[in-house]
Write a protein that binds this DNA or RNA. Structure first.
Length: 498
RNA sequence: GGGCCGGUAGCUUAGUCAGGCAGAGCGAAAGGCUCUUAACCUUUAGGUCGGGGGUUCAAAUCCCUCUCGGCCCGCCA
C-alpha cells in the first residue's frame, strides 16, 4: 500500500503547522491546464493537511502588477505600445474586461470555482496600491547592496550599476522597464525616478512601482506567513529564483523560506509543453468543456508533481474518465479529486459517446436513449447534461473519426449490395428485436447469423450499413437498444426487402 | 558550460527519502456465451526495474559512472 504524495508532504509538515500554502500565477495570457497544476498541487496538500487536523490556509496571489514583457502571438500589433506596463493598467485586448489582467484572470478564477478550489484570492496591484508591500520595499531599498551581493553569489549574475530592487512606474508613459530609480525617501515612502521618455519625479511606494520578481517573491512570504510554496521547475534551477529567494528571505527579511514543492510541466500530446507566451495552450475552460472537473483534478492529482504529464485529449481521455468513474485508479487520488457528494457517475463515458450521437443534440432524445439502455435519468439530470456537453465537444474537437457515426434518416443505398442471406437475416432480426434488452439483442445477432449460416463479421457490417451507412459502429446490442424500437424494426424490414 | 527532473510490463504508472518476495490500472489473450464488434464478470500472460561497476547476507531503492528523454540557467507554471 503506497502513501499518496500529498499525504507524504502533509506528514512532513504536520508538526510545524499552522500552514499557509501560497500559489500565484501571472495572468499575462490564457491560463492553461499547466497553470492549473500549480493550484491543484497546492490544493491537494491543503486537503491532506486538513484531513490530518492541521490548521491550514490556501491563498492565491494573482500577479496582476507584473509588466507585459513582449507582444505575445495572440495580441494585436497595437499592443506594442503597452509593453512594459503593469498588466492591471493595460486595457483588455478584446474590450470585454476592466483590464488586460482581468481578461485572463477572470476565466481562471471561474475555472477554479468549477474545480472546487477555493483559495483566498489577492491581486498584486491591489496589494501594492494599498501599501501592503511598503515595509518590504523599504527594507529592500535600504539593503539593496546586500541583495545585489546575494544575487551575485547565488546566480552569478552581476546587477547593473545603479540597480534598484524596486521598479518605478513612470506616471507619464506608464512603463516600468524604462525608468531608473535615482533615490528614495524612507520616511515619506517615495521613490525618485527618471524615465527614458523624458519624465522624472517622485512616485509613492504605494502603487508607484513594484519590486523586481526575485525580491517580490520572498517579500510576500513574511507578509502572508507563507510556509508552503509550490512552483514550476523553472524557478527550481540552481541559482534560480527559489535559491535567491530563500537567501533574501532569510538574510534580508529574517523569515524562513517556505517548504518548496517543485512541479513538472504538462505536455500536450504531439505538440509539446504549453506556454502562454507561445500560444501553445489548452485553456482550462477548453479542458472543462471536454473533461468533467473531478477528472481534470484526477489527471493532476494522480501524478506526482515531479513527473511530467503527457496529456492526450484523444482516445486516452476516455480511459482516464472511465478510470476515475469506475474507481479503478489510486484510491486516495480519487478521494482527493472528488468534489461532489453524489458518488460515482454510473453511465460509462463510452456509452455516452453513443447516446449523444444518437440524440444529435436533442436533450429529451438523449434521456430517452439512455433510459432505453436502462440507466437512471431522473436523479442526476444536470450531471448527465454536463457530461453530454463534454462528449459533444470531445466529438467535435478531439475524437478520432472511427468513433463518430450518424444514424441515417433514410435507408442507405449501399444496402443494395447486401447478399440475399444477409437481407434475410436482417428480416429475422426485425421480427425478433421486439422487447429484448441490449444484451439479448446482442445475443440475437449472433444467433441469427449462425442460423442463416452467415459470417458474424459480415452480418455486423450489414447492420451497421443499414443504420449508419458504415461498416462499423458501437457495440451492436447496446446501440440498437438505444434507438427507438419501432424505428429499428422498420429500418431492418426496409433493408431486408430493399 | 552549469543545474534540475524523469527512465520500472505494449501504454500510464506505484514502490526509491528510511535496502528485505517488483504491485496496480489500461491494453492484449482465454473463458463466461457454438459469438473479434466500443458495456459487463472471471482468469492468464506479459519485467535484464535505461546500461555498467561498487557497497551489502540482501539493491529498483545507497555510492560511482555512462546513457537516453524532458526542461531550466534575463522573464515564464
Amino acid at each position: 500500500m503506497s502513501i499518496h504524495w500529498a499525504d507524504v508532504i502533509a506528514e512532513k509538515l504536520e508538526k510545524s503547522g499552522p500552514h499557509t500554502i501560497a500559489t500565484g500565477i501571472t495572468p499575462s495570457g490564457p491560463v492553461h491546464i499547466g497553470n492549473m497544476r500549480e493550484v491543484m498541487t497546492a490544493e491537494a496538500v491543503y486537503r491532506a493537511l486538513l484531513d490530518r487536523g492541521v490548521e491550514a490556509k490556501l491563498i492565491y496571489i494573482a500577479d496582476t502588477y507584473d509588466r507585459l514583457r513582449r507582444l505575445y502571438p495572440f495580441l494585436p500589433e497595437s499592443f506594442t505600445e503597452h509593453i512594459g506596463k503593469p498588466l492591471s493598467e493595460i486595457p483588455c485586448p478584446l474590450g470585454c474586461c476592466a483590464s488586460y489582467a482581468d481578461h485572463f484572470l477572470n476565466p481562471f478564477l471561474k475555472s477554479m470555482e468549477r474545480l472546487g478550489i477555493k483559495p483566498q484570492v489577492y491581486r498584486a496591484d491591489v496589494l501594492y496600491k494599498e501599501g501592503k508591500y511598503n515595509e518590504a520595499i523599504k527594507t529592500a531599498l535600504r539593503r539593496k547592496d546586500d541583495i545585489a551581493r546575494i544575487l551575485k553569489e547565488v546566480s552569478g549574475r552581476d546587477v547593473p550599476a545603479g540597480w534598484s530592487p524596486f521598479d518605478a512606474i513612470c506616471p507619464t508613459c506608464g512603463r516600468t522597464n524604462t525608468t531608473h530609480v535615482t533615490g528614495f525617501d524612507l520616511e515619506g515612502e517615495t521613490v525618485d525616478y527618471e524615465c527614458s521618455c523624458g519624465s522624472k519625479g517622485t512616485v509613492s511606494m504605494s502603487g508607484g512601482g513594484k519590486l523586481v520578481w526575485r525580491v517580490d517573491w520572498p517579500a510576500r512570504w513574511p507578509i502572508f506567513n507563507v510556509t508552503v510554496e509550490p512552483f514550476g521547475k523553472d524557478h527550481a534551477t540552481s541559482g534560480g529564483s527559489y535559491d535567491t529567494g530563500k537567501r533574501i528571505s532569510e538574510e534580508i527579511y529574517g523569515y524562513p523560506a517556505p517548504f518548496p514543492m517543485v512541479y513538472e510541466w504538462i505536455h500536450l500530446k504531439g505538440v509539446g509543453a504549453m506556454h502562454s507566451s507561445t500560444g501553445i495552450v489548452v485553456t482550462i475552460q477548453e479542458m472543462l468543456d471536454v473533461v468533467p472537473p473531478e477528472v481534470l483534478r484526477y489527471l493532476i492529482i494522480r501524478n506526482k508533481p515531479e513527473k511530467h504529464i503527457e496529456f492526450d485529449p484523444g482516445l486516452p481521455l476516455l480511459s482516464l474518465v472511465d478510470e476515475y468513474d469506475q474507481r479503478k485508479g489510486d484510491e486516495r487520488a480519487i478521494e482527493l479529486s472528488n468534489i461532489s457528494k453524489s458518488g460515482p457517475f454510473e453511465i460509462p463515458f463510452r456509452h455516452m459517446v453513443t447516446a449523444v450521437q444518437i440524440a444529435r443534440g436533442d436533450e429529451d432524445g438523449l434521456f430517452v436513449a439512455l433510459k432505453r439502455s436502462g440507466y437512471d435519468v431522473i436523479t442526476r439530470r444536470e450531471e448527465i447534461l454536463g457530461r453530454a456537453r463534454n462528449v459533444q465537444t470531445w466529438l467535435d474537437k478531439y475524437a478520432p473519426a472511427y468513433v463518430k457515426f450518424q444514424v441515417q434518416e433514410t435507408l442507405p443505398v449501399a444496402v443494395k449490395n447486401l447478399t440475399p442471406q444477409e437481407r434475410q437475416g436482417l428480416g429475422i432480426l426485425a421480427e425478433q428485436v421486439e422487447e429484448k434488452t441490449a444484451a439479448d439483442i446482442h445475443e440475437l445477432v449472433y444467433a441469427v447469423a449462425k442460423e442463416q449460416g452467415l459470417d458474424s463479421k459480415k452480418f455486423f457490417q450489414a447492420i451497421y450499413l443499414a443504420f449508419l451507412g458504415d461498416r462499423q459502429g458501437p457495440k451492436v446490442g447496446w446501440f440498437l437498444a438505444s434507438l427507438e424500437r419501432g424505428f429499428v424494426k422498420a429500418r431492418l424490414k426496409e433493408a431486408a426487402t430493399a
